[in-house]
Design a protein around this nucleic acid. Sequence first.
DNA 1: CGGGCCTTTGACTGGTTTCAACTTCTGTGG
DNA 2: CCACAGAAGTTGAAACCAGTCAAAGGCCCG
Lengths: 193, 193
Amino acid sequence: MSLLKTAIENTLKASITEEEFAQFEALLTEQSFEKKALLAEEGHRCNSVYFIQKGSCYSYMTDDKGEKHTVQFALEGYWISDLYSFFSDQKAIYTVEVLEPLQVLSIDKEHFDMASQQIAFFDRYFRILIQNAYVSLQYRLAKTNSEEADKRYEEFSKLHPDFVQRIPQYLIASYLGIKPQSLSRIRSKHQKS
Amino acid sequence: MSLLKTAIENTLKASITEEEFAQFEALLTEQSFEKKALLAEEGHRCNSVYFIQKGSCYSYMTDDKGEKHTVQFALEGYWISDLYSFFSDQKAIYTVEVLEPLQVLSIDKEHFDMASQQIAFFDRYFRILIQNAYVSLQYRLAKTNSEEADKRYEEFSKLHPDFVQRIPQYLIASYLGIKPQSLSRIRSKHQKS
DNA sequence: CGGGCCTTTGACTGGTTTCAACTTCTGTGG
DNA sequence: CCACAGAAGTTGAAACCAGTCAAAGGCCCG
C-alpha cells in the first residue's frame, strides 16, 4: 500500500480510486539523496516539492552570523520544500538538508501545474495540506511568544516523540529557538523531576 | 470599484468577470461591528471568515496567566478568522476583537463550501491566499527565532507602516513577542540614532 | 474635570546566551 | 579491531537581553 495514497486519503478524509491515484503518481519522480545532500539551497531557485517516503530532512534559514534556524522537520509522510521560492519563482530563502538517507517522490512546478489542471482531487488536497500547515504554524508561533523554553520542549516532545528519537538535539534546540546548551540544561532538569 | 474584487484579482494575478464576482458576492453577508466586539471567541465555535472593508481588528491567544498574544492584525483588504475552528469544527483557540469600527463581508462554512463548489475561481483563490499567508508566517517565525527584538521591530515598521500608525503599541509589542515596556525602550533608543 | 488606559522611565530580577572546558559518541582509516 | 579526530552533548561561570515591579506623565473619552 502506497504511503502517499494513504496520506492523501487521510488529508482529504475521503477515498480516491486507484485510477485517480495512478494518474497523479505518473506526474511524480522517484529520487534518492545521501545524507547532507541539499534538496533546496538558499539563493538558488527551488523548483520542486518533495514527499518523503523514507528517511528524514529539515529546512533552515541562515542568519547574518551564519547560524542556522530550523523551520521544519520532515519524516516519512511529510512534504517539504522552500514554498516561497517554489510559488514565487524567486530565489530560496531556506535550505533543505538530508539527515537520514532519503527516498522521495518529487514534483516540479510544471507537473504541479499539470496536476492542478488534470487531477480532480489535487487542488483540494493541496489546499487542505497547506491549511493544516498554516494552522499548526500559527499555533507554534503563538506558543513561541507565550511559553518559556522548558514548556515548549515538553509540548514538542509529547507531540513529536518520533522527532526526539531521530533528530539530533542541537537541531531540536534550533527548532525551538534556543541554543543547544539551553536544551541540554532543560533536559537534565526535567529528568530529575 | 469593489475592494474585494481588486483583492481577488491581485491574488489570482488575473481578472475575473463582473458576473463571476457577482455570483460570489451573493454568498457573502455584509456586517458591522462596534469597537471591542468579538468576531470569534476562544472556546466558542467560529463559523465564519471575514473580509475587512473598513476598520481594523486583531486575533490573539490568551495564555495561562491571562496575557494576550497577538497572532494577526487585519486592516482593509485582509481576511481574518480562527481558521483552526472554522475548518475543524472545533472550539476556537483564538479571539478576534475589533479595534476600529468594522465593516466586513462574512461567509459562513455552508456558503464557503457552496463557493468551493460553484465559483470557478474560489478554490484557487483561497489556496493562493493561504499559501501566501503560510509563507509569510514561516518567515515571521524564522525571524522571531533568529533576530533580536529591536531588529524585528525595525523590519515590522518598514513592512507595515500602516499598522504602526493605526494600532496601539502594546499590541504591536505582543505581536513581536515582547512586553510594551521593552518596545517603548526600543523606540526611544531608535529615535536617538 | 476626572478616571482609566496607554506610554515612558528607572531599578532590579531572571532566563538564556556566551564563553569555555570537558565528556561522550561516532565513524573512519591505519 | 583499535586509535583517533571531529561532532554532539554536558556543565560551570559570567554577561546580557528582556521581564518584572513600580511610579509618573500623557491622553482620550465620558
